[in-house]
C-alpha cells in the first residue's frame, strides 16, 4: 500500500510500472526535433475527418488502439482509463473512447491532464482497485484555436509570448507489475493564481504553480533537485522556465542544470515559428510517451520528475477579465 508523505505527496509502497506508451502527432510536431520518437506522424491535421474536433477524437481512438496493439492486450485486460483534453465537456476524449470498451474516467486539468491522469492511475493501482490503467491526454491545434482563440483562417499576429498547441495524443499503460520504468511518487498540485491575465502568456501564469509543486515535492520527499536526472515541466516554454528557475532560486533551490520543458523540446522555435514553445494536453503526453519513455527504457535517463502544467482558464473567464488559475502535478518516474 502507498502512503501519503508530507503535505501533498503519495509515495508508492510497490511502485507502479509504466509498461508501455504510444504517441501519435500531427505533421508540425513530426517536423520537430523529437520526430524520430513518435509512433506515428499524421500526414494532415484533419486525418480524413470533417472537423478539428472529430480529428482530435480520431487521434485519441487510434492512439489507444495502437497502445493496446503494441502491448498485445485487448480492452478487457484494462480496468480503467483516465483521459483528458482541452475541449468543452472533454469531448475530445469521450468521443475518442466511444466504441472502446473500457471503464472510463474523464478528467480535466487543462494541459496538466496527463500528470493528473498518471497520478490518479497510479493511486488506483497501488490502492488495489486495478491491475492495468490507461492514461490518455490529447489536444489539437485546430480545435484549441477554434475554442480559445480565433478561427483558423483569421489573419492575426501571435505575440512573442504565445505558445503553439500540440496536435496529438499520448497514452501510457500503467501496470501493477513489470520491468519499469516505475512511478514511485506523485505530488498533486494546488490551484495557484498569481494574478496573470494575459492568455497569450500562459508560461508566466503557470510558472508559480510549477514552482509550488516542485518545491513541495522535494520537501515532502526530503530530497534535493540533484536526486533527479531531469526535471521536466509540461508547457511553460522559454518564458515560463526562466520564471520557474527564478522562483525556485528564491526558495533556495537551484535547478538550472536539471530543468527542461516539453514545450521547448517538441518544437524548434527558430525554424518552426512557435514563439514560447509547445502547449496543450498533448505537449507533455506525447513528449513523455514518445521521447522520455524511450530514454527511460534505454536507461539513458533513470530518474525523472515529470511536471505537466495547466492554465485553468476558460474562454468565458478571459472575457470576464479574470486572472488565470494554474496547476502543476509532479510525477516521479524511475528505473529501479
Amino acid at each position: 500500500m502507498g502512503k501519503k508523505i508530507g503535505r501533498s505527496t503519495v509515495k508508492f509502497g510497490s511502485p507502479v510500472c509504466i509498461s508501455n506508451a504510444a504517441s501519435i502527432v500531427g505533421p508540425k510536431e513530426g517536423e520537430g526535433p523529437l520526430s524520430e520518437y513518435f509512433d506515428k506522424i499524421l500526414g494532415d491535421e484533419l486525418v480524413g475527418q470533417g472537423s478539428w474536433e472529430q480529428a482530435e477524437s480520431k487521434i485519441v481512438n487510434d492512439t489507444v488502439n495502437l497502445l493496446l496493439q503494441k502491448s498485445g492486450l485487448s480492452t478487457k485486460d484494462i480496468d480503467y482509463v483516465f483521459a483528458g483534453d482541452l475541449l468543452n465537456q472533454t469531448a475530445g476524449s469521450t468521443f475518442g473512447f466511444r466504441g472502446i470498451d473500457i471503464n472510463y474516467f474523464g478528467i480535466y486539468g487543462a494541459c496538466s491532464s496527463f500528470g493528473e491522469g498518471l497520478g490518479l492511475g497510479a493511486m488506483v493501482i497501488d490502492g488495489g482497485f486495478a491491475n492495468r490503467v490507461i492514461v490518455s491526454a490529447s489536444s489539437h491545434f485546430g480545435s484549441a484555436e477554434k475554442q480559445f482563440r480565433l478561427p483558423m483562417e483569421a489573419g492575426s499576429q501571435r505575440p512573442p509570448t504565445s505558445s503553439w498547441t500540440v496536435t496529438g495524443d499520448g497514452c501510457a499503460l500503467l501496470d501493477k507489475g513489470g520491468h519499469g520504468p516505475f512511478i514511485t511518487s506523485v505530488t498533486t498540485g494546488r490551484i495557484i493564481d498569481m494574478g496573470i491575465k494575459d492568455q497569450n502568456n500562459m508560461g508566466a501564469a503557470m510558472a508559480p504553480a510549477a514552482s509550488d509543486t516542485i518545491y513541495t515535492h522535494l520537501k515532502d520527499l526530503g530530497v534535493t533537485a540533484d536526486y533527479y536526472d531531469l526535471i521536466i515541466t509540461g508547457d511553460l516554454g522559454y518564458i515560463g522556465i526562466e520564471l520557474l528557475i527564478k522562483l525556485l532560486g528564491e526558495k533556495g533551490i537551484g535547478i538550472n542544470k536539471k530543468i527542461s520543458d516539453c514545450g521547448i523540446k517538441i518544437f524548434d522555435r527558430d525554424k518552426q515559428d512557435t514563439h514560447n514553445g509547445g502547449s496543450g494536453c498533448a505537449c507533455s503526453a506525447v513528449t513523455f510517451s514518445g521521447y522520455l519513455f524511450e530514454l527511460l527504457k534505454g536507461k539513458s535517463l533513470n530518474k525523472i520528475l515529470l511536471v505537466p502544467t495547466g492554465a485553468l482558464l476558460s474562454p468565458t473567464s478571459v472575457l470576464q477579465n479574470e486572472t488565470i488559475p494554474s496547476i502543476a502535478h509532479a510525477v516521479a518516474i524511475e528505473n529501479l
Binding site: 509570448t161 496573470i196 502568456n201 508566466a204 518564458i239
Partner: peptide, 19 residues
Amino acid sequence: ISNSEKERYKNIVDKASPK
C-alpha cells in the same frame, strides 16, 4: 497570495516576457 506578491511577480513577468 498577497497583492504585493502578485505585483512583484507581475514586474518579474514583464521583464521576462519579450515584446
